[in-house]
């Protein structure tokens, strides 16, 4: 006699767990993959994403490094050029500036400068964003700095399903990938299917379908944008929310198709407004869909100040629901 048990079809997990699952899958799937970074091993990762991996995979593949960002990234680049698939971690994107020389002058240039001879399949994980009262040297959002550079792919991962699939996709890329994660939402839980579905982070994702206005965003702030969309729905405004996910290259098609339906757009991002990804998206909408627009493209971003420590000031510097709602009202009342 047999009994039938019903296997659960969904599982609840945090974003941190989803990222760890992605790293584990990558390490199991491909023996060329190894991790290197500060405190990723014995400590378990400064945001606990790599907790337990040292015990499971050993010190050859989970490599704790000294506080040497240039050496971490430069060594990962060299290993990538010579047959390995390193995943290098830089705790925060503020620290990544120490390694910017290696990322920009080596990782991004070597394939082109060598006439196509040396590709650099390195994955660089880092974090961005405020919200934990960590002040101006641990809270910034530098996605636009990296998205400015030809030769690297820049991905932003802020949902559980994306987190589970991100490294699989990043490691398939023969060229450098800079991956932004977000400490503010690491403990956020979601119910997802037990079996990870394939994801394509190269394309933008429509997080909420809507017909009245297109809200283009990426990263952790998209959860604030989704809140704003819920508020707008109560006002009778049906907002479409697009998560760009890939900041270089940009998925213009998804954005332009949405704007063609809604005729209005607001870009919302956590980095500073000047010369940001939002500025680029707004420019592309204006270039490619000017006659679809019923109003100028709106922009919401963080205040142009170094991120302050005090909670009320940090909140004031970040895009919040009321500001997003107000920006949408402005574009709805125009045109």
């Amino acid at each position: 006699m047999s009994t039938t048990t019903v296997e659960p079809t969904t599982v609840t997990l945090t974003l941190r767990e989803a990222l760890k699952q992605s790293l584990r899958d990558a390490l199991i799937r491909d023996e060329r993959v190894f991790l290197m970074g500060e405190d990723i091993g014995a400590y378990g990762g400064c945001f606990a994403v790599t907790m337990g991996l040292l015990d499971e995979f050993g010190p050859e593949r989970i490599r704790d490094t000294p506080l040497s960002e240039v050496a971490i990234i430069g060594t990962a680049i060299g290993a990538a050029m010579n047959g390995m698939r390193p995943i290098a971690e830089i705790m925060t994107c503020n620290f990544s500036l120490l390694a910017l020389d290696q990322i920009v002058n080596n990782a991004a240039t070597l394939l082109h400068m060598s006439g196509g001879q040396f590709n650099v399949p390195v994955v660089i994980r880092t974090t961005a964003g405020a919200g934990k009262q960590l002040a101006a040297q641990h809270s910034h959002s530098f996605e636009p700095i990296f998205a400015h550079i030809p030769g690297i792919r820049v991905l932003s991962v802020a949902t559980h399903e994306d987190a589970r699939g991100v490294l699989c996709q990043a490691l398939e890329d023969p060229d450098p990938v800079v991956l932004f994660e977000y400490p503010r939402i690491m403990t956020m839980e979601a119910e997802v299917p037990v079996e990870p579905a394939p994801v394509d982070l190269g394309s933008a994702a429509i997080r909420r379908a809507g017909s009245d206005v297109t809200l283009v965003t990426y990263g952790a702030i998209q959860h604030t944008v989704l809140e704003a969309a819920a508020t707008l729905a109560k006002d009778g405004i049906d907002a479409e929310v697009i998560d760009l996910r890939s900041l270089r290259p940009l998925d213009d098609a998804t954005v332009l198709a949405s704007v063609a339906r809604t005729h209005r757009a607001v870009v919302v991002e956590e980095p500073w407004r000047t010369l940001g990804v939002g500025a680029e998206v707004a420019a592309r909408i204006t270039e490619e869909a000017f006659y679809d627009l019923d109003a100028p493209v709106g922009r919401i971003a963080s205040a142009e100040v170094p991120m302050p420590y005090a909670k009320h000031l940090e909140e004031a510097a970040l895009p919040q629901v009321p500001a997003i709602v107000a920006a949408v009202h402005r574009v709805m009342h125009r045109g």
Binding site: A71, G74, T75, A76, I77, G78, P86
Partner: peptide, 8 residues
């Protein structure tokens, strides 16, 4: 550092 990576 690149040389260290190649050798590694």
């Amino acid at each position: 550092p690149l040389a260290v990576g190649v050798a590694l």
